[in-house]
Amino acid sequence: MRHNFIDRYAALDSPLHILEPRTKLLAFTALIVGVLSIPATNGFLFFIYAFAIAIMMGFSQVPLNYIVGRALLLLPFILLASLAAPWKGYLGFGVLFVRAILCLILLILLTNTTRFAELLRGMRKLGCPQILAMNLSFLYRYLFVLTEEAMRMKQARDCRRTASAPFKEELKLLSSMLGTLLIRSFERAERMHSAMLSRGYSGDFPVISPRKFSWHDLAFLSVVTLFIVSTFCFTNR
């Protein structure tokens, strides 16, 4: 199974990658809010934002076809929801669609230019409760372990199954599989806890942060702020 579909390009070394995670979290959130507040009639601003995002994509060194591929994966839902848009004119649909796509690309950029461990450190420093950060870190680590376990169970089920069982049987089988997976998760958590205790764990989950807030971050943040403020001024004129 491929393990790198989550943060495949997060280990590159581009101008976007070297930023401190807090900077990126704040800046990208601001940019998404910016995209969301572009008035629908202002085609020019959409263009400006698209241009800015394209520049960042260029700097990020994340391959274009990867970004497009990821965006395409989520496209059906966005299309469907946009089609249900009430003001059925093409413009209403187009605006919703473009907004969603721009935000999606920003999110893809954020997650593919930051290692998850660093993203977590950023969140932690921005005031995310420790228990949630720990949860996310464990989730990231054990996601693949448990998914592999789940896939093995699924294979074993598919091997034994000859014809499709009735709906109810199928559900019963699935719930016992899920139950087994759940019990194994519990047991693994206990083993992991003893491994943590064995290495002196006493409630403090240490954080090591290799990246410091530097002039890069200051520069990036000020450019983004300037950009957003100027687009706002432009809107209100």
């Binding site: 870190s137 990231y140 054990y142 083993r191 491994a195 943590m196």
Partner: peptide, 13 residues
């Protein structure tokens, strides 16, 4: 202590 399943022992990102 070195545990049998390294997955149990390596819990950090």
């Amino acid at each position: 202590l070195l545990f049998q399943d390294p997955n149990d022992q390596l819990f950090c990102p």
